[in-house]
Amino acid sequence: MPVHPARSWAPSLPSALLLMVPFDVLASLAMDVYLPVLAQMPAALGTSSALVQLTLSGYLLVLGMGQLIFGPLSDRIGRRPVLLGGALLFTSASFALAATQGGGLFLALRMLQALGASAALVATFATVRDVYADTRQGNTIYSLFGSILAFVPALGPILGTLIALSFGWRAIFVMLGVTGLIAMVHAWRGWHETRPAPTPRRRAVLGAVLADAPFRVYTLGFSAAMGSFFVFFSIAPRLLIGVVGLSQLMFSLAFASVALVMIVVTRFAGRFVACWGVAGCCARGALVMMSGAVLLAICTWLLPSSLVTLLVPMWVIAIGIVMTVSVTANGALAGFADNAGAAVALYYCIQGVLVAGLGTFWVLFLGGDSAWPLVAQALVVPAACLLGLVRLRRDGLQ
């Protein structure tokens, strides 16, 4: 397949978003759209609650780790075949999940679904880097994608609840399959190759990417933000349904209030970046997350668990999440024009491991029936990112 110059693709921004956004949305939506019906699935699949819970954290791990394969592969064979192959795998696995009867097979298919999402996601971000590097449109797309990764998981449980109540929980995976099929057909028609032409000096640069200080700091920032959200949706069902006593629908609506906050803040993300720059926006986002963590600690220490004591601090943390994820991809990937696929792969691989690993550690160590895991995640990891930004500025790298 011929490789075209990187900038020759460049459709209008709305057309580009119509091509790209579905894959970003699906990768995030599939993560936890079935969260409100987890309690029903062990009996339906004849398996344990622990295995069903593993389908959440396992998806996130594979989503990140798989990009170590697909990032360099997209640099070698192109973005289009990786994207279409990933979309086909995601779609096929989604339809198979809807028909699965056993827990072990369900878990295996979830891992295949995550691999497909991983391939599509890395090809999408590499295409953005190919076509829109160092442009205002690129900043807009990065901001939108970062916000999608934050607020789609908040909206997903509401969608999952409505589908499950109307058609049963298996219809959730039919919806993912149908949506993936539509996105794949659209991409087949309109997604042209954007990989830069190979040069004699092109080679795998995972080591060079890891050695880049801005890459490490901004990847940690993304992990701090998404890790906070991961811990929130890990403890929220046990707190809001098990402790507070909300129904599934009320739980989903409460969950969606976090998404509403993120949507509102996203409208101002461009202004934040224009005013404070990438580093300044990331630093302020870390500080806001830490402020929310302090507020949550005070509420948890002094007041009984309730909808208000969890949600109000989470709204503050959500503001910081959007401010952070709106700029971290741009900050982390700015120095990698010729190997964008490898850089994107490592970016998502590291954050996937950090989010799932640290998030699971906090939940297991501090207990998933309290808010303390969220306090720890939203306080410790953003503080580490903030220290990294200070060091970048001191070393003249920002």
Rank of each mutant, 00 (worst) to 15 (best):
F145H: 02
I163L: 15
L181Q: 06
I148Y: 00
A150Q: 01
V122R: 09
L149V: 02
R129P: 07
N139A: 14
F167M: 14
S143G: 15
F125M: 15
G156N: 01
V128C: 10
M175C: 13
F106V: 06
A164V: 06
V122K: 10
D130I: 06
R136G: 05
L149W: 02
G104F: 10
F145Y: 13
L89Q: 04
W169T: 02
G146L: 01
L97S: 03
A117Q: 06
L144G: 03
L181P: 04
L162S: 06
I148C: 00
A164T: 13
M175G: 02
A123Y: 05
W169V: 01
R136H: 08
T179H: 02
L149I: 03
S94I: 02
R110G: 04
T91V: 03
F90Y: 14
L162D: 02
A171W: 11
V122P: 05
L107C: 06
S118W: 06
T100Y: 02
Q137G: 11
A154G: 03
F125C: 07
V122G: 08
A171Y: 10
A99P: 01
D130P: 12
M111S: 09
G138R: 12
A114T: 05
I172V: 12
L84Q: 06
S94D: 01
V122Y: 08
T91D: 00
F106Q: 03
L107K: 07
A96E: 00
Y132F: 14
N139Y: 13
A120C: 15
R110F: 04
L176M: 12
I172S: 01
T179K: 04
L107I: 04
V174Q: 04
L176F: 04
I163Q: 07
A123S: 13
T124Y: 09
V152W: 00
L121T: 10
L112N: 04
G168S: 07
F173Y: 12
V128M: 14
T140M: 13
G180E: 00
S143V: 04
F90N: 01
L144C: 09
T135F: 11
F167H: 12
L97F: 01
A150K: 00
L84H: 05
A87M: 05
V178K: 10
Q113R: 11
R136K: 12
L181K: 08
A126K: 10
A114Y: 04
G168Y: 06
A133C: 12
L181N: 05
V131G: 10
N139W: 09
F151Y: 13
M111P: 07
A96D: 00
G102I: 04
T124F: 07
S118G: 11
Q101K: 09
P157E: 03
Q101I: 06
D134N: 14
T91C: 07
T100V: 14
G116H: 08
L84R: 06
A171K: 07
L109D: 02
F151R: 00
L84T: 04
M111L: 15
L88G: 05
G138C: 10
F106S: 03
T100C: 14
L165D: 15
F167Y: 13
R136V: 07
D130C: 10
L155W: 04
T140H: 14
L105C: 05
L89M: 15
G103R: 03
I163W: 08
N139D: 15
Y132E: 11
Y132G: 04
A120D: 06
S143T: 13
F167E: 08
L109N: 03
L109V: 09
T179N: 05
F90K: 01
I163A: 08
L109I: 09
A93G: 05
F151W: 11
